[in-house]
Design a protein around this nucleic acid. Structure first.
Length: 648
DNA sequence: GAAAGATCACGTGT
DNA sequence: CACACGTGATCTTT
């Protein structure tokens, strides 16, 4: 697993498609025209270990609340070493390093140097490698492997980040003047401490395996963690001259985010300004010099080395007001020194996008933005209706088919929420919380959820659970309560579309942040007895118990803390019912199946207390860019799924 | 808007 | 020569 072909990095201009070697060894970079002044050391094997040992089971604990506190403390002590912990800290950070989770990393020495040899507080880590490699001709199984690895890594980053916010929110009322901590930095630090940063044992030129064009990131640190761009702030990433085999720096990636007034971005062609010469307010105050990243770009141009381009976008709805999109590989074709608008000299680099790559993520984002405002102008043909839900949803559900004449979805009655049989509402308790001003930490409903809230203040799912109890009609908290998320319905514009591969599919016109609520999987509930009576509609029945338990992956920190246990209170309820979608359905049932899905099913209760009949709520497992297909793990063999997704 | 906060490359020192 | 450490630069983030 994880084998891949690495091609010696040379002669790209002449022969972009070098024959793939099947070796696992990584050849050292040898830029064209450059005399080799030293013998090549034998290269280390290139292998990535998966950071996922078997997920530890989550035994239910009698006292989940104290378990949560204990974990919070453990987490806090690792994250923010300076904070006072007045509880009994389970593992004083220095006393027992082995009790912390250790995840296998590529390099056993790195393992040692990262964790064992490094006392807490020391900031020495495994240095970045100077070894340049290009990864090419991955086999499909390798691609899946790397994609999964990236996905897991990003999910862990998000889980840690969201958890760090949750921990912070829990302490919030203790300290009145409050400043929200940099959860992104904390998550990255924890991962680094555990050797979970990717692509540090080599410098990848070109595409990073497992990262697709169009992937969206919310934080610069996320780019560092997966190795797409190794600088926390600087826009040019490069191998420094001191580490390069010929003493010349080599650029590998840039970020175009509009921070330089002299940039010109026409999509396929960019005129990029070198760095340097700015003051604290990003004003150009002195001339730039041909050094560091600037020199690296020039050298990369000289050797014809392609450069990854990541674009920064303004984006409301991101906590930082920004997102970063990977747009693929560019080649530098020209550079010159120019007088910028400020009157100071700047270096300019003309970059041209390499052909035969899939469409740029930023292009798709712009296209989606135009679809949001004026869909018929952006795409005059193909829309069957601009709202399948007939205004029942908060946002329109568009229906697009430019493949054939099938208009089937418009003939179903649109159902926003699952319809349960009446008896479901008549059993169970009718108790609720008394939080008139909104729920607080130790309220009745928090306790039902194991002593914590399932969502953070932004409405992001903190951790997948067997069952979530949202506040309901018997609670006295207002609709704005933080424990009411899924019940409030969709927050995005979705589009049902005809696909030649998957029959029907669903995509979003908005960017969806990982952990966000997407929609309910709605249908008409049939009890087991009813199912036995209505057997003719077997194809249109959804069995909730069959969905893969992907919620276990979300927010699972057992990769970081070996003794991590989910504070779960209830066990997974027995889902002894089916849902009929033969006449009434919502957007969810057009989602297609994937064994590597980007959407998970989370069971939620809010309008009744019958744990055997929860709502099937869908949440994003990763950041889903606009126009990318949503997919669910239906938990059955792929070939069978084609039918189910189509729902004929 | 300002201040806090990271990383990394580079320079100096041992 | 190699490593360690401090410093300065950097298209961040709240």
């Amino acid at each position: 697993m994880g084998s891949n072909s690495l091609v010696p990095f040379q002669d790209l201009n002449v022969c972009p498609e070098l024959p793939a070697t099947s070796t696992l060894l990584v050849p050292k970079i040898e830029p064209k025209l450059e005399p080799l002044d030293e013998p090549l050391p034998s290269p280390p094997a290139f292998s990535l270990s998966t950071p996922s040992p078997a997920p530890s089971p989550c035994p239910s604990s009698a006292d989940v609340y104290s378990e949560f506190n204990r974990l919070s403390e453990l987490f806090r002590s690792t994250l923010a070493q300076g904070l006072q912990g007045n509880g009994d800290m389970p593992f004083p950070p220095d006393s027992d390093p082995d009790s912390r989770a250790l995840v296998p990393v590529d390099n056993p020495e790195a393992h040692l140097s990262n964790v064992v040899l490094m006392p807490r507080g020391s900031r020495k880590y495994q240095a970045r490698s100077s070894e340049l490699v290009r990864v090419m001709d991955l086999k499909p199984e390798d691609e899946r492997y790397f994609r999964d690895l990236i996905r897991k890594t990003r999910m862990l980053f998000d889980s840690l980040r969201v958890y760090a916010i949750a921990v912070d929110e829990k302490q919030k009322d203790l300290m009145v003047p409050h400043r929200r901590p940099r959860a992104d930095l904390k998550a990255a630090a924890v991962m680094r401490e555990h050797g979970l940063w990717l692509n540090r044992d080599k410098r990848v030129v070109g595409d990073i395996p497992g990262v697709s064009i169009g992937d969206v990131f919310f934080f610069r640190m996320e780019l560092c963690v997966i190795g797409l761009h190794g600088q926390a702030q600087a826009g040019i990433d490069y191998v420094p001259s001191s580490q390069s085999s010929n003493g010349e720096p080599i650029a590998t990636s840039i970020i175009v985010s509009g921070g330089y007034e002299d940039d010109e971005d026409a999509g396929d062609v960019i005129v990029y300004t070198g760095h340097g010469g700015q003051d604290k307010n990003n004003k150009q105050v002195v001339h730039q010099k041909l050094e560091c990243g600037n020199l690296a770009l020039e050298r990369s141009m000289n050797y014809g080395i392609e450069v990854r381009v990541i674009r920064g976008f303004k984006y409301e709805g991101s906590v930082s007001g920004k997102v970063y999109v990977y747009d693929g590989l560019y080649r530098i074709i020209e550079t010159w020194f120019d007088v910028g608008k400020s009157g100071f000299g700047v270096f300019k680099f003309k970059l041209v996008r390499i052909e035969n790559q899939v469409e740029m993520g930023s292009t798709i984002m712009k296209f989606a933005a135009s679809l949001r405002t004026r869909p018929l102008d952006a795409r005059p043909r193909g829309y069957v209706t601009l709202d399948l839900s007939s205004k029942k949803e908060n946002f329109p559900v568009l229906f697009f088919n430019d493949v054939d004449k099938d208009h089937d979805p418009i003939y179903y009655e649109y159902l926003i929420n699952t319809v349960f049989p009446p008896f479901v509402y008549h059993c169970g308790s009718t108790s609720g919380c008394d939080c008139v001003g909104g729920c607080v930490d130790d309220c009745f409903c928090a306790k039902k959820n194991g002593g914590e809230f399932p969502y953070n203040l932004q409405g992001i799912l903190v951790r997948g659970k067997p069952l979530i109890f949202e506040c309901g009609p018997h609670c006295r908290c207002p609709p704005s309560c933080r424990n009411r998320v899924a019940q409030k319905g969709v927050r995005n514009r979705f589009e049902v579309f005809r696909s030649t591969e998957t029959g029907w599919g669903v995509r979003s016109l908005d960017l969806i942040q990982a952990g966000s609520f997407i929609c309910e999987y709605a249908g008409v509930v049939l009890t087991r007895e009813q199912v036995q009576v209505f057997t003719m509609n077997g194809d249109s029945l959804i069995y909730p118990s069959r969905f893969a338990e992907r919620w276990r992956e979300w927010g699972n920190l057992s990769d970081v803390f070996c003794d991590y246990k989910c504070p779960e209170d209830p066990s997974t309820p027995p889902l002894d019912f089916a849902m009929d979608v033969s006449r009434m359905r919502n957007v969810a049932c057009y989602m297609s199946h994937s064994s590597s899905p980007n959407v998970l099913v989370q069971l939620v209760l809010y309008d009744h207390n019958n744990v055997s009949f929860p709502h099937l709520m869908l949440f994003a497992m990763e950041n889903i860019p606009p126009m990318r297909e949503l997919s669910l793990d239906y938990g059955v063999a792929d070939e069978y799924m084609g039918k189910l997704a189509i729902c004929n």
